[in-house]
Computed example of a mutant assay.
Amino acid sequence: MKFVFFHLMPYPYLPDDFDTRYPSPSLTFPNRYFDRETGNRLYHRYLDELEHAERLGFDGIAVNEHHQTAYGLMPSPNIMAAALARRTSRAQIMVLGNAIGIRGNPLRVAEEIAMLDHLSNGRIVSGFVRGIGWEYFAHSINPTRSRDRFNEAHDLIIKAWTSDEMFQWISPNYEYRYVNLWPRPLQQPHPPIYIPGAGSTETMRFVAQRRYTYMSVYAPTRVVRRWFDGYRDSAAELGYEPDPEKIGLSIPIFVADTDAQAHREGRDQLMWLFHKGLKQGPELMNPPGYMSPSSMRGVLAAGMTPFPQLSYEDLLSGGYAVVGGPASVTARLRELRDELGFGQLIGLFAIGGLSHERTVRSMELFSTEVMSALRSDQPATTG
């Protein structure tokens, strides 16, 4: 199994009246609540944690992109990847990912990832995401164009990476008279590509057709199983079975010395993530036209409870997160692996306002006791 340390880089210091006064930490939440000195300290702390993850033996260290939100302070994940490229030497540096659907110039993404591939000596992983609904509002882009923009940007980037001759690109959303990428990526034909899915059948087929890695977003186990099965079904229709490592479970994880300590220290931070950080109404997550009718029917049929309505016990029993001492976390992850069939674990360890010291302790316990135990197991099966 492959283990990835994923960071959202949250800004957890919200006002006391946030719950009653503000509908979301995104888009319209006033930036006067961002304290410059605190933000400065957080960026350096978070980079320290990512670098420490490599020393602990994680296979990958991952960053991602979000805009105009306290949920995650990385409007440019490629800058964070560049900061990590020269301070690490072994782990894959995973951008999970660039929101190419909202980029006005996707060719710039192709250039930056190619540069990062060289700076990291071929360790870069390129994730592509469509961007969340509110981010289309933030960039004044009609969300009904999301899928087409994503597909066209993806195709342009892949061709730019793999073509050894100048070409012209004319499509409904992008126009380039000259495409002649300098530098080309170090990895050939291009860096590995990861794409998250949240129930869209189009995404499942898209990833299966190209044999990319499919990763989940935060959801209950029963829903993630539907997503992974949909991806496997799409692959089966194409005549192959994806390697378990091509399936990545994204999940918050907190480990302490004992179960009691883990629940005592982790409860409030997990509730921050799901009740405050993920306090996004449907109008922000899935505005009209963002998803196709068939995909929207699938999302509605899944019957997911809005995050702010879930209790701490709901989050743990439903498989949204894993919290406990090393033995309990190991056992729970084995259960999830055997049920879901993933071969890659993308763990979020810096949860909510969890202190740096507790985050590092959780990482270290996971590395020395949980990760080593899971690595010794047999490959995952779908049960």
Score class of each variant (00 low, 15 high):
Leu354Glu: 09
Ala62Thr: 06
Thr221Ala: 14
Leu270Gly: 01
Ile141Trp: 00
Gly72Pro: 05
Gly298Ser: 05
Ala99Glu: 05
Ala256Phe: 01
Ile170Tyr: 13
Leu56His: 14
Ile124Thr: 15
Leu348Val: 12
Phe29His: 07
Tyr212Ser: 08
Pro77Phe: 01
Arg32Gln: 11
Ala138Gly: 02
Gly248Cys: 06
Ile157Asn: 01
Ser126Gln: 07
Ala219Met: 15
Val360Ser: 11
Phe6Glu: 00
Arg358Cys: 08
Asp259Arg: 03
Gly352Asp: 02
Lys2Ile: 13
Phe128Asn: 07
Ala91Leu: 08
Arg297Ala: 15
Gly127Glu: 01
Asp257Ala: 10
Met94Phe: 09
Asp164Arg: 15
Pro288Lys: 07
Pro172Trp: 07
Asp155Lys: 00
Tyr136Phe: 15
Val255Ile: 12
Leu340Trp: 08
Ser200Pro: 05
Ile158Asp: 07
Tyr194Trp: 14
His263Gln: 09
Ser140Thr: 11
Ile346Leu: 14
Arg41Leu: 12
Arg103His: 14
Glu265Trp: 10
Pro183Gln: 11
Tyr176Lys: 07
Gly57Thr: 03
Arg145Gly: 11
Ser26Thr: 14
Gly127Trp: 02
Asp19Ala: 15
Lys2Pro: 14
Arg87His: 12
Leu50Ile: 13
Gly277Leu: 03
Phe254Gln: 04
Met9Val: 00
Gly324Ala: 06
Ala114Tyr: 04
Leu273His: 13
Phe254Cys: 02
Asn31Asp: 12
Arg149Ile: 03
Glu112Gln: 11
Val299Lys: 10
Arg297Glu: 15
Ile251Gln: 02
Asp257Trp: 00
Leu354Pro: 13
Gly347Lys: 09
Arg103Tyr: 10
Tyr22Pro: 06
Tyr22Leu: 07
Glu283Asn: 05
Arg205Glu: 15
Gly289Gln: 09
Ile113Thr: 07
Phe167Tyr: 13
Gly248Thr: 01
Gly72Thr: 10
Ile351Gln: 02
Gly101Leu: 00
Pro288Asn: 05
Thr258Gly: 01
Phe34Cys: 11
Phe366His: 02
Pro220Ser: 02
His67Val: 13
Gln188Cys: 04
Arg90Trp: 06
Pro288Arg: 11
Gln269Asn: 15
Ile157Gln: 05
Ala153Tyr: 07
Gly197Leu: 06
Pro196Trp: 05
His7Trp: 05
Leu310Gly: 05
Tyr218Gly: 08
Tyr194Gly: 03
Met285Thr: 13
Ser120His: 05
Ile61Trp: 08
Asp243Arg: 12
Pro10Glu: 08
Ala91Ser: 14
Leu345Val: 03
Leu186Met: 12
Ala85His: 04
His356Phe: 13
Glu335Ala: 09
Thr213Gln: 07
Val255His: 03
